[in-house]
Write a protein that binds this DNA or RNA. Structure first.
Lengths: 181, 181
DNA sequence: TTACGTATTAACCATCTGGTCAAATTGTAT
DNA sequence: ATACAATTTGACCAGATGGTTAATACGTAA
């Protein structure tokens, strides 16, 4: 709390005045960050664009958005793994996202879209859950695991940057290739 | 330290006797866990099996191995994101893995294998870095992000279990489909 | 100006935490 | 049995940490 107060140029007691205690402050931060991380995803997937368009948009949005706040995935994952109560909060966030904007049931919409496209022979059949997790894994993991990737691939900062640039150029095609019938 | 000592059924001072201080203890734990996480990966990828076989083996090995210690990815990622010094340690671990066993330069081997298979028209061309990160993302992320997945997909423990079972049955094919020429 | 609610701070407290040390216990070679 | 090193412990300490409170500064409507 002391550290945070200093960083904010403010007295420690003021933090308690606004957030009551440390765990509530942590909750508020998590809520804000996690919401930002999921908002655009559900918005895109809940829309009515073609599945190929959606994939393209998700990849581009995530890679460019997270490039600006690369610490987000690592933070959210750490938080989720270390404080079980965050799971409930995330559930709440997802529920809010689902009701508030114009994305009533993005998972249901996605599901129908996938089965229809498969029936028409435009893509291979795939369970919507697996589709979603595959897509998000490929986009988010490289940010959360940056130090791991740099170590294994022996990249410095510039090397990682190059790697991510190449990724932005190839990931969409990779994913769509996997869906090809 | 107190908590750890109790869990180990031992006096707190004994931990300091063996590990000197908390950060060294953390280092030792990280070293052991991270080594276990990467050993099999480099062993498989450094071998001389066909690329399709390697993919199959990595997926199967990771999904079954991590199912037994599902906290590992989350722990390693958290550790890496919160303590920058872990990056150096991981680099050290990777270096050790690379020299000790019979996997001298698994990345170079993989690279040659991929370009050759692409030249022969057996797979699409793909950069080895992207290949590796794609594969690991798809395997590891679902463990690290379990709470996230459960929240978004609204799964309870049994639902997650079903999801991972289905994943084990479909992931290899998904990845190989992406490589199809 | 006064009055009053909001915002902000300094000082303080209880507790927790990592770490140390001297003493005690155990193992073992002679 | 003795000597000596390795192991294990209880007691203690200094500093850090989350949290509280009473007092002060600030904005603003009457």
């Amino acid at each position: 709390m002391q550290e945070i107060a200093e960083e904010a140029g403010v007295n420690k007691a003021l933090l308690h005045y606004y957030f009551r205690n440390k765990s509530r402050l942590g909750e508020a931060v998590f809520r804000r960050v996690a919401t930002g991380m999921f908002a655009r995803l559900t918005a895109i997937l809940g829309g009515d664009a073609d599945i190929e368009i959606k994939v393209t948009q998700v990849v581009e949005t995530y890679l460019s958005q997270l490039s600006k706040v690369p610490y987000v995935p690592g933070y959210v994952l750490s938080e989720l793994n270390q404080h079980p109560e965050r799971s409930h909060q995330l559930l709440d966030i997802v529920r809010t996202l689902r009701s508030n904007p114009d994305t009533p049931d993005f998972l249901g919409a996605l599901s129908k879209q996938l089965t229809r496209a498969a029936r028409e022979g435009r893509i291979r059949p795939i369970a919507p859950d697996q589709f979603l997790v595959n897509l998000v894994s490929l986009c988010v993991f490289p940010f959360a695991a940056r130090p791991m990737i740099c170590a294994v691939l022996q990249l410095d900062d510039r090397g990682y940057e190059r790697f991510m640039k190449q990724r932005a150029a190839t990931l969409t095609q990779f994913f769509l290739d996997a869906l090809r019938p």
